[in-house]
């Protein structure tokens, strides 16, 4: 596979959220506003790229028996770095993302890519893979957050789109809204992919 494809596959074809249904917990929980989504997406992408690079570097050094604890250590270290850096430099974002920053540690996309990709591929490819998956994750969460913020508050990125007389559909920013939105988007994407396949 070409290097560039390692990057692009994560965006649609193997999108971690819509296609592989990985890491749904943070997607459902923090997609209440686009701002949160960008923050979460960026934090997860950073951790994903860094952990992929390091795990790929260390792949010959880490014995397979203890590889999972080692991966978790590497990931947890990066997450803690992100957590502390966010609290120090962007406290409002840190406050609104709350517990979900530390929980990036258990985001299965990151461990999944470490195990499935970075431990078998070179550093450059692993970096591209991490970046692609991270961008795919971020795009998914931003799309969901846009829909939910638009319907549930009437704004996008805190900019008012719908008139102030709009009575917000509060269900959209409550948990059920997250499930319904993600279900409809997954369905839509699979319809589109099926159409593409049947044409081909």
């Amino acid at each position: 596979m070409k290097a560039i494809q390692e990057f692009t596959k994560g965006i649609i074809k193997e999108n971690p959220v819509f296609v592989m249904a990985l890491g749904l917990c943070p997607v459902l929980a923090v997609s209440t506003s686009v701002q949160n989504a960008i923050g979460m997406g960026a934090a997860a992408t950073f951790v994903l790229v860094c952990s992929n690079i390091f795990i790929s570097l260390l792949k010959n050094f880490i014995p397979s028996k203890v590889r999972i604890p080692c991966y978790i250590l590497v990931i947890a270290s990066f997450v803690t770095i992100v957590d502390m850096a966010m609290e120090a430099y962007v406290p409002p974002l840190h406050k609104s993302l709350g517990i979900f920053i530390p929980l990036i540690v258990v985001n299965c996309i990151i461990l999944g890519r470490a195990e499935a990709f970075a431990s078998k591929n070179g550093v450059f490819k692993s970096m591209l893979d991490g970046l692609g998956m991270g961008v795919g994750f971020m795009l998914a969460i931003i799309v969901i957050a846009s829909i939910r913020e638009f319907l549930g508050v009437g704004t996008i990125l805190d900019i008012r789109i719908l008139p102030a007389s709009y009575k917000p559909m509060i269900a959209a920013i409550l948990p059920p809204g997250a499930f319904i939105t993600i279900g409809l988007l997954m369905g839509l994407l699979s319809i589109l992919q099926n159409k593409k396949k049947s044409k081909a």
Partner: peptide
């Protein structure tokens, strides 16, 4: 249930 969650005031 959807209406109740979305527009509890109304």
């Amino acid at each position: 249930a959807f209406l109740m969650a979305s527009w509890p005031i109304q």
